[in-house]
Each structure stands twice: as structure tokens, then as C-alpha cells.
């Protein structure tokens, strides 16, 4: 149901999107997912459930993985949003291709964004990335195609590609 989210009059939103300043008018409770996909044409972020259960809509807000279907637009006011269309996902993208972590691809952008958030949090916190950590970090991202083995391997390869904790 979209109606309830769109009822209030639009407000002015200012935030950083994929490294560039962004300004637009949107109802405050409009889902960030719709702002990205419909208002801004960034359709790399997918919708699999609309209720926070599948992870296909994962984006980064100030570096943390969040579900764009649950975030109202007003919450990104003044913050930094990064989607799969943004820069800096190359190690994860390559790892998913190399490990065979892509099949139908509908979960892939969300998986890649969540993987990057995990790899960067490991580096930040000085945690050595391991299989268990990858499985925990990606537990909110559903994939019905792969059985996850190749996805977990991709996450570990991405972590290796980004190097040791800083």
C-alpha cells in the first residue's frame, strides 16, 4: 500500500546521493525506495517484499546498510546515501562474478551493498572476516537461486580483495 505514505504534502529534501548533492521535493513519509527508483530513476535498488524481509532494497546510509523500503524519505535529510549505482563497489562486484554468486540477479545489488557494509565494518572494527561473520551479516538478504555457498564465498573474496583490517 502506497497511499498512506504519500498523503502528507511534500517537503524539501537535501542529501548526498552517490557522492553528489541532491535536492528534491517528496512527501516526508515516501519510502526512500520510491524516491530512489521513481523520483530519481535509480532502479538498481530492488523491491522484493516492501516490508523489510528480503534485503533486495539494501542501500548505504552514512555507511550503514539499511532497507530502503522501511526508511521514510525525511530520514535521509542531510545524510549520505549510496546505492549500487554509486562508486566503490568494484571489489564486491568482481567477487560476486568470480565466485558464481549471481544467478537471476534480483538479490545481487542488495547482496553487494550489504557485503560492502560488512567488509568495511570488519576493517573498521579490526575483525577478521570469516564465514560465520559473512553468514551473520547477510542473513537479512534472501536469495532463492544459489543456496548461498557462492554468495558467502563472494563475500569472503571481497574481504580478501579489500585487504587486512586498517
Amino acid at each position: 500500500m502506497r497511499g498512506p505514505f504519500e498523503a502528507a504534502p511534500p517537503i524539501e529534501l537535501t542529501f548526498t546521493l552517490n557522492g553528489r548533492p541532491q535536492q528534491l521535493q517528496a512527501p516526508p513519509l515516501r519510502r526512500l525506495l520510491d524516491v530512489l527508483r521513481e523520483d530519481l530513476g535509480l532502479t538498481g535498488t530492488k523491491e522484493g517484499c516492501g516490508e523489510g524481509e528480503c534485503g533486495a532494497c539494501t542501500v548505504l546510509v552514512d555507511g550503514a546498510a539499511v532497507l530502503a523500503c522501511l526508511v521514510p524519505a525525511c530520514q535521509v535529510q542531510g545524510r549520505s546515501v549510496v546505492t549500487i549505482e554509486g562508486a566503490g563497489f568494484e571489489p564486491e562486484q568482481q567477487a560476486f562474478l568470480d565466485a558464481g554468486g549471481v544467478q537471476c540477479g534480483i538479490c545481487t545489488p542488495g547482496m553487494i551493498v550489504a557485503t560492502r557494509a560488512w567488509v568495511e565494518s570488519c576493517r573498521r572494527d579490526g575483525v577478521t572476516p570469516d564465514e560465520r561473520g559473512a553468514r551473520d551479516a547477510l542473513a537479512g538478504n534472501l536469495c532463492r537461486c544459489t543456496g548461498y555457498g557462492a554468495i558467502v564465498e563472494a563475500a569472503l573474496r571481497a574481504a580478501a580483495a579489500r585487504g587486512e583490517p586498517t
Binding site: 535498488t45 562486484q93 545481487t108
Partner: peptide, 8 residues
């Protein structure tokens, strides 16, 4: 079909 899928 891989590159288009990983880049969105």
C-alpha cells in the same frame, strides 16, 4: 548477463 546484474 553478469556485469549488468552486479551493477544494477
Amino acid at each position: 548477463d553478469g556485469p549488468a546484474k552486479v551493477s544494477g
